[in-house]
């Protein structure tokens, strides 16, 4: 029934076209609200971590001030903002933590909740998630 599938394709293009124009030209960093926006996302994420016993357990030995600065710097660098990430590699920082798949996914859920609270556009949310998901292999213990 090809007619049927063509119809679906048209509907999909129509609906995605109407609901989300990617902001052309703006860097992902700008779409997240630049420095102030990224700082709000990081602050929101810290609150989420504090409220979730599962992920909080990973941060018991963490210098929160340094973590906040390095995470903001990393988010800025990874979203094509004007920063260079100066922290340790993801593999190095997570090597001793035995991060579980569940903890990783809970943190992703937390990040999504924060981005929704900050009213980040769906396309920008997904673009950031795509870039961070690429780090999964370096963060989660096998």
């Amino acid at each position: 029934m090809p007619r049927f599938l063509y119809l679906w394709l048209w509907l999909t293009l129509l609906v995605t076209g109407c609901t989300g124009q990617p902001e052309r030209g703006d860097s992902l960093y700008a779409q997240l609200g630049g420095e102030a926006g990224v700082d709000r996302i990081v602050a929101g994420l810290l609150w989420e971590i504090a409220e979730d016993a599962e992920t909080r357990a990973l941060f018991v030995d963490t210098d929160i001030k340094r973590f906040r600065d390095k995470l903001a710097e990393q988010l800025c660098a990874v979203t094509d903002g004007p920063c260079v990430y100066t922290g340790d590699s993801m593999r190095e920082t997570h090597r001793h933590l035995q991060v579980t798949s569940a903890q990783f996914n809970r943190l992703v859920s937390s990040l999504i909740r924060v981005m929704e609270q900050e009213q980040i556009a769906v396309g920008a949310q997904n673009a950031l998630l795509q870039r961070l998901a690429a780090m999964h292999g370096d963060i989660v213990a096998e």
Partner: peptide, 9 residues
């Protein structure tokens, strides 16, 4: 696919 097509998963 995160961000697969037009910013959509």
């Amino acid at each position: 696919w995160l961000n697969g097509v037009l910013g959509r998963n």
